[in-house]
Write a protein that binds this DNA or RNA. Structure first.
Lengths: 330, 330
DNA sequence: CTGTTAGCGCGTTCAC
DNA sequence: GTGAACGCGCTAACAG
């Protein structure tokens, strides 16, 4: 059988090794030879099969991206940033989604243990699970996004949840609101906890006390925002002056219920969120903006640096920014 | 060097060939041997390196997914459906994004010509570009999502834009609205054209004529929805009774402007969209729902079928559904 | 500078 | 049923 490579060798009058050198930009090739080879490569439209290279160099030059969180624009934004950086470095991304915590194990073994990729970026997975137990045996760089896991020796990229919580709370306080209700995420949720701490710190600094029974835990979903709002209305208790939802999805859910009840935002009640998701602008929602794009970029940079055996910072914090719209009363 | 495979062979007292047979579920292995091998595999945690397999079988068992459209939940939904089906069949997805039309060429050559994947699902790319010229030479199954390319011999998955346009328009007409403005996408946009045709058909059937100067072309972005709405207000012309935006993003933009101007929806003006995106529910937007998930699933099914040399349908149309909320006046 | 050789780790004959 | 031998396509090491 006459492969394309053989044809190229014949045409260029050289061996396969030289063709390989030319295609890999080796400096050890005479200019005239290089030109002959490139001409032959073009003529026969020769493209090296990557599997051969993979086998030889023991690398796939592919980065996997694993995520449970695909319902919102968040994932998509991170992915786009990650893709851009991977692209620059001739790397590819492979995506995989866990369809629930039970799936993690299966995914990890398929992706990590099969060594189908060189490094792994993990989005928002609970790395404190048993999977982490043998992280040292993975023998593969893993970067965590949104779940700092420094104590495990896993570099991570996260956002400044504390500062974000602080500044949005501070803004509401500056409006003069004192009776502020908080819709948090699950108690054990990393983002929720840190955002909450930021809020409480801001309240403390302003000499405002947040009543414990004004803190309501939800699930960071639109539906749970709806539920919390509905419960608050049903309780018959006086409404707070403002609601601070620790993510936009819950804020959106709450706004939906208020709209249905004929209550106006911010007329009857101010609202603020956290995330600055796609809908925030059209809803006029005051919120905290995070560059998800940037998170993806930093994550891939960390992964690539680790692959190159460079020193990598253990933890990159991407800054947040308050975006003031009308829902807070501005 | 003592590889994990050698250890397994020694432990199980057999050759590498038998280990391979066991791991590939070959029926030609005695049960007792199989058990010994599996035990050894577990003991040494042996996992075949895929690169060797890829090289041997000339397949990567990976499906690439290529998309320019990552700003909304749409992409994410399709990806999730695609992932689920790929997963079932032990396939992986590799993602790549074109950052503008100039990029397509580069991406195609990296992904298709390098044969890094076995098949390619292309989202929403303009396949009528010059890239299609040599589609027959790709020698790789390509499935198009959102851009039927039957005439090119490329199977595709798309939504029933015509029926969707028809039913949402019909609904507005049933409300009694006659002066209806349309916000369309770019004139050359496939979805926009077909949705528009559906709308016009519905109007025709109802004996309602749509004035040409009530049809405004935008860019399917929130911003362009804002602009069109603002222009309409600035023109001083009497507002229409309803606005039908041919995607939700533009409807959201329009609603944002109306809110700023103190106009109420549907009080002063009814609005409907198309897509049923994430924010549609909280905005109370009447719209057309499409199962993006399903599109991803069908696309991967088509790709896998083509890889198995099965007969594949040339065109799968995913149905749409009218979702009635409050913005239309219901 | 270039060619020859060898081997990456599998799956697959073809003997036995 | 099983093992030995081969080769997938490429690149690193060494020789010249």
């Amino acid at each position: 059988m006459t492969s394309a490579l053989e044809s190229v060798c014949r045409e260029a009058g050289c061996s396969a090794a030289t063709v390989s050198r030319v295609l890999n930009d080796s400096p050890l090739v005479k200019e005239s030879t290089r030109e002959r080879v490139l001409a032959a490569v073009t003529k026969y439209d020769y493209r090296p099969a990557p599997a051969g290279r993979w086998l030889r160099v023991q690398r796939t030059e592919t980065i996997g991206i694993l995520s449970p969180n695909v319902g919102s624009g968040f994932f998509t934004d991170v992915l786009l940033g990650a893709d851009a950086v991977a692209m620059e470095h001739q790397y590819h991304l492979m995506t995989a989604f866990s369809h629930g915590p039970e799936d993690h194990q299966k995914l990890f073994s398929r992706i990590i243990h099969q060594r189908r990729v060189d490094a792994l970026v993990v989005l928002d997975l609970d790395l404190h699970s048993h999977l982490l137990a043998d992280s040292s045996r993975w023998d593969m760089p893993v970067v965590s996004v949104c779940r700092p896991a420094v104590e495990r020796g896993i570099p991570s990229v996260s956002i400044d949840n504390h500062a974000g919580g602080y500044s949005v709370m501070q803004h509401l306080l500056e409006h003069g609101y004192r009776d502020i209700a908080l819709f948090t995420g699950p108690d054990n949720n990393y983002d929720s906890r840190h955002r909450l701490e930021g809020c409480l710190a801001a309240a403390r600094n302003a000499g405002a006390d947040l009543a414990e029974d004004r803190i309501h835990a939800g699930w960071f979903t639109m539906k749970s925002g709806k539920n919390l709002m509905q419960q608050m209305l049903d309780s018959g208790r006086k409404l707070p002056e403002a609601i601070l939802a620790l993510n936009d999805a819950m804020a959106m859910g709450a706004m939906g219920v208020l709209r249905e009840q004929g209550l106006s935002v911010p007329g009857d009640l101010a609202i603020a969120g956290f995330d600055d998701n796609e809908a925030a602008d059209s809803l006029g929602l005051t919120t905290i903006q995070v560059s998800h794009n940037r998170m993806g970029e930093e994550a891939v940079r960390l992964a690539l640096a680790a692959l190159a055996n460079e020193e990598v910072p253990q933890h990159i914090v991407v800054p947040t920014r308050l975006v003031v719209r009308r829902s807070c009363g501005c």
